[in-house]
Computed example of a mutant assay.
Amino acid sequence: MPGLLATADLVEAQAALAAAEAGPSGTPSVAVPTVPPTSTPLAPAASVDRVKQADADFEAAQAAVTEQTTLADASEQFNSAVVALEMAWLRLFADAGCLTDDQQVQAEAAVSSYTFALQQDLATAGYYAGTVDGVTGPVTVQAIEDLQEANGLPVTGTVDKATAAALQAELVALGGAAAQESLTSTAAVQ
């Protein structure tokens, strides 16, 4: 990539020099070589689109906060948008090869462990009926949305502090063992 940038800079400089040498007539006295653009995307378009969508959602969440918005609602909207944006950027970095193999393995393991524990907790609370596999998919997102709706939270499909607290409260209500198991799983992931 640095070679392409250097080549593009060289071509631009040669064109500027030729224009300066040509003077007012506009006819260059030196032939300027052209290099056709050869850009290969570093990441899939879907990853870039995911970041753009998450950024738009983040801006919308910010714009939706007014003086009439309660602090709890503003926090939930803002936090869920921030988490989604952060995850989209991490995926883009990984897809673009910006992470070392070790960093990518660590990031994927952390996300998978967190998702696995979340799916277990959602299943214990009665919201998740899919396979507990550590992969966030439509069934996981639907379970989060169902939890949020049942607890009067903004339905975002992402876990923010209020959603995590609601899930923890439901686990406590189900019994000490489920809550203790959840705390152990969460602590292990963190």
Rank of each mutant, 00 (worst) to 15 (best):
T163G: 06
A84Y: 05
S185K: 14
L85G: 15
L90C: 03
P37I: 06
A13S: 14
L99C: 02
M87A: 12
G134V: 01
Q62H: 06
A15W: 09
T27E: 10
A150F: 05
Q119K: 00
F78H: 11
Q53T: 14
V159A: 03
A177M: 05
V82Y: 13
Y128D: 00
A6L: 11
T140S: 11
V189F: 10
D9R: 13
Q77Y: 06
A45M: 09
L17K: 10
L171F: 02
P28G: 09
A74Q: 04
A178H: 07
S39C: 04
T69K: 03
T124F: 01
Q104L: 10
T38Q: 13
G3V: 08
A72P: 05
L71R: 14
N151Q: 04
A81Q: 09
C98E: 15
V139L: 13
F78T: 13
A16C: 08
A96I: 01
A179S: 03
A18E: 15
L42E: 14
E21L: 15
E170H: 10
A22K: 02
F58S: 08
M87F: 09
A164K: 12
D160Q: 05
D101V: 09
P37Y: 03
A107F: 13
A45Q: 15
A123C: 02
A6R: 14
V155L: 06
F93H: 12
E181P: 02
S185H: 12
D49F: 08
A110N: 12
F58L: 13
G130T: 05
L99W: 09
D121R: 10
T158C: 01
D101S: 12
E170W: 02
L167I: 03
V11G: 04
A46P: 04
P2N: 08
T156D: 03
V189N: 14
Y114E: 09
V11M: 13
A18M: 06
Q142P: 10
S112V: 01
G130C: 04
A72H: 08
C98I: 07
S113C: 01
Q68T: 12
G176K: 08
G134T: 00
T156V: 02
A109E: 11
T140N: 03
S113Y: 05
D55W: 13
K161F: 02
A187M: 10
S113R: 13
A150W: 05
P24G: 08
A117P: 00
G23P: 04
Q53D: 14
M87C: 02
T38N: 14
